[in-house]
Simulated scan of single mutants.
Amino acid sequence: MIDFRYHIVSIVAIFFALGAGVVLGAGPLKGTASEVVASQAEKDREQLADTRQELTDLKALDKYRDDYVAKVTAGLTDGKLTGKHVAIVTMPNADGDMTNALQDQVEQSGGQVTTRVTLDSKLFDAGQRQLVESLVTQLVVADIDFPADSTTYQRAGLILARGIAAKEEGKTADADSTKVISGLTGSKLLSVKPSQVKDRASLILVVAAKPPTPAPDNSSYNDPVDFIEGLDQGSGGVVVAGTPESAQNGGLLKTLRSDSDATKIVSSVDVANLPAGQATVVFSLAEQAGGKAGQYGAIDAKNGVAPSAVQTKDN
């Protein structure tokens, strides 16, 4: 992308120079036209060099910031998730590298990732709603208590939570969780690794994708937000991690944060692509384990940069 910008600047400079030459060649300064063009070209080259240097400096500062957070503050998350089992659920088209980085951060903080669930885009396709409703009916088990006003996708989230998670630590897979996982994976609406869940998690980390282009209407995320609420209701807590784009119009976090019911129980972090944001995800998971929720990050995050428990108090 940077090289492309350089080419554009160069091309503009060339056409400017050609234009100047034509004008000057037809006027009284015909004899000095070449000198004017050469002078302008030199100025353009200097400006281009300055722009390149500014970009290089900005990249160096960004790298310094990320390296500082990753290396100097790395120990701040140590032990924050000791004894906690965490399931990772990736939304359709979520970034794999960011998901891996988040898993590494969870594990470095003492947590154990029990399973990774990959949601297929078909899950939230309007044409699949009847299939989802049918699965909810088929897979419901005795200890799932659907709220009276729950939606189809809230119930679907509760069903998945029953398969991979529990409200308390120490719950292992049983016949009902195996039934749920088998039924959901058989539908081809999601996949689970490992396919045989041994330990059920108490916490769930949902990884959001960047919004597509063109950005969809925020209402297109209503079903995913309901699904995430269901995950929370069937577990000990949920944190949704995304990039700044996901907290802007057309993104999942934007819709989530606009839902007052969801934000009472679900946490979100909109800078999970940065080392600092990945640490905040850990702090948010720990906060969820304590029964609290918050919205953190850089874009309309009403609770600030991180949970208050880890922020420096003002004197």
Rank of each mutant, 00 (worst) to 15 (best):
S150F: 11
G294F: 02
I144S: 03
L102D: 11
R5Y: 10
T73K: 12
P211I: 05
V117Y: 09
P216T: 02
R200W: 04
I265R: 06
P307D: 00
A87H: 15
P194Y: 06
A74H: 09
I299Q: 06
G25D: 10
Y296R: 04
S177P: 11
K71I: 09
A38H: 08
A33W: 13
P92H: 11
A201T: 08
V271T: 10
D149Y: 10
Y221V: 04
T118Y: 11
A309C: 04
A87P: 14
P194E: 01
G230E: 02
A301E: 00
V206G: 13
P28D: 08
T151C: 14
D44F: 02
P224V: 03
Q295E: 00
S258N: 10
G31P: 01
A306T: 01
S195F: 04
S268P: 06
N93H: 08
T178C: 05
G111N: 13
V141L: 03
A173C: 07
S39H: 06
N315T: 05
A17V: 10
A70Q: 13
D66S: 06
T51N: 15
S134H: 15
G75H: 13
P211E: 09
G297Y: 00
A142V: 12
D125N: 14
D226Y: 00
D270E: 00
F283V: 00
Q196T: 13
G294N: 01
G230P: 06
A87R: 15
L189A: 03
S121H: 15
G163P: 13
T82S: 15
Y153S: 04
H7F: 08
P211A: 09
I88W: 10
E287Y: 04
V140T: 04
L135H: 05
S260L: 12
S150K: 14
V281W: 03
V269I: 06
I164W: 09
T185I: 02
A247M: 04
A208Y: 07
V86H: 14
K80S: 06
P28R: 12
A209D: 09
S109K: 10
A286W: 04
N100G: 13
I181M: 10
Q53S: 05
L256Y: 00
L61W: 02
F4G: 05
T213Q: 06
